[in-house]
């Protein structure tokens, strides 16, 4: 099984990189672009067939290492 972890900055936490990307999109002529937020995706191969066990394990990984919950939110997606 594979897990996809999406890590994003929490609402209210300023994202200067997302803002710079938004400005660049505007200067490229994409006038309809609103707020842009940048995050990261981490893909993890898991030797686990039980979906709930896999999700629980990945959530623990997020809390311990993959996300800094002071500034970031995370979402876990199981693939396959």
């Amino acid at each position: 099984m594979k897990a996809k972890v999406h890590v994003t900055l929490k609402k209210g936490v300023l994202d200067p990189q997302g803002k710079a990307i938004g400005n660049a999109l505007h200067s490229l002529g994409f006038g309809n672009v609103g707020e842009v937020r940048q995050g990261k995706v981490i893909e993890i191969e898991l030797a686990e067939t039980d979906r709930s066990k896999a999700e629980a394990a990945v959530r623990t990984m997020c809390e311990k290492l993959l996300a800094n919950t002071v500034i970031e939110d995370y979402a876990v997606e199981l693939v396959g």
Binding site: V13, L14, P16, Q17, A20, N68, V70, I71
Partner: peptide
């Protein structure tokens, strides 16, 4: 030290990038 939770808060990318 913030990542180890010995100190509160976090250090993010400089606002001016």
């Amino acid at each position: 030290l913030t990542e180890a939770r010995l100190l509160p808060g976090a250090l993010m990318r400089n606002a001016g990038l």
